[in-house]
Simulated scan of single mutants.
Amino acid sequence: MNKYVKYGLIAVLVLGAMWAAAFFIKSNSKSATAYDTKKPFTSNIEKKTVATGKVIPEDEVEIKPQISGIIDKIYMEEGEAVKAGDLIAVIKVVPNEQALNSSRGRVRNAEIALNNTKIEYDRSKALFDKGVISSQDFLNLQLRYDQAVQELDNARADYQIIRIGSAGGSSSANTNIRATVNGTILEIPVEEGDQVIQSNNFNDGTTIATIADLSKMIFEGKVDEGEVGKLQLGMPLEISLGAIADQKLEAKLKFIAPKGIEEAGAVQFKIEGDVEINDSIFVRAGYSANASLVLEKKDSIMVIPEALLQFDRETDKPYVEVKVGDQKFERRDIEIGISDGVNVEIVSGLSFEDEVKIWNKTEPIKRGEDEEGNEGGEEETS
């Protein structure tokens, strides 16, 4: 082998060994990660749950007609305030032809019967005045005459009701649809010209209007079965409205459903709460809302950030690492209590003097490296 080639190979091997040694030294010269610590501290914890739902009027009254027909005129609009007795709409009656003809025939029969009875009454009265017939016979005939008059009046009234919906056009006519309670008109689902059906034993009837008192609102929502057992009637609720930002309403829990409803594999229980309405805001019926309920609260207890907890892979029990020297830590099993998702209660295992390792610390991005990466990205894009 040529001596120059031999010396060249030796030089390459020497340079490679020197580069490897330099890389090893540089890699091991990096400082070890320094962990920060945090001591337990005193704080208050509230364990809350949130129920989603909506704000609705406590009572909604549906106004329905007592006679079938066609909407002739609507006098109110949605959103208007009304009082009991205010006229909302008028119905034009479209009578049934068979019923109308039958009623007309009844009137005619009553007129014929009255005419016949009147002839007998007039003849008997003349005989009674002359003393030919007894007083008892005359009184019996007079009773028949009065009954015939009353029958004709009844037949004519029934005929008027079938034909126009009212016997005499009074303010209490069935064709006049009036508010039955004080409140605000939430909805008028019909228009002029629409046909409506009367309310009866076999049909709910057509709704002409829906009225509610918007000063008496309730929250209606649902909570999960895992939390419903911790609720109690009278608990305070904090209502957040989706349509009104930065506004909170106070409420009190007044109802918890005794039976749950399964939804998407989870059992939900309906709850209701009386909402205190502020005069400064106008709450519309049907606003979506969230109700925050405090399930458990503890004041002045020892806590640590929940992020400091670690859990045993086999037993799933919580523990932390406590500082025992310079960057030296030992495992400490602890017992925890309630948590609000940020801090967790320490029941036992720690003291206020212990320094707990922040084990999941994230390294901040150096400004120089970040700018370098951005420059590189810009060059590649260009």
Score class of each variant (00 low, 15 high):
A212L: 08
L214N: 06
L214R: 06
M217E: 04
I218Y: 05
I218L: 08
I218G: 05
E220Y: 04
G221W: 02
K222L: 13
V223K: 00
V223S: 00
D224R: 10
D224I: 07
E225Q: 13
G226D: 14
G226H: 09
V228H: 03
V228R: 06
G229T: 11
K230W: 07
Q232C: 03
Q232G: 11
G234Q: 07
G234A: 08
M235S: 04
P236K: 07
P236S: 07
L237M: 13
L237W: 01
E238F: 12
S240G: 02
L241M: 09
G242P: 04
G242L: 13
G242M: 11
A243G: 05
I244W: 00
I244F: 09
A245P: 09
D246G: 06
D246H: 08
Q247R: 09
E250Q: 14
E250G: 14
E250M: 10
A251N: 05
K252T: 14
K252V: 11
L253Q: 02
L253F: 01
K254A: 14
K254Y: 10
F255P: 05
F255Q: 09
I256Q: 01
A257K: 02
P258S: 08
K259I: 14
K259N: 13
G260D: 09
E262D: 13
E262F: 12
E263P: 03
E263K: 12
A264M: 11
A264T: 10
A264N: 15
G265E: 11
G265Y: 07
A266R: 15
V267H: 05
V267N: 07
V267Q: 04
Q268M: 15
Q268S: 12
F269Q: 01
F269Y: 13
K270I: 02
I271N: 04
I271H: 04
E272I: 05
G273C: 04
V275Y: 00
V275N: 03
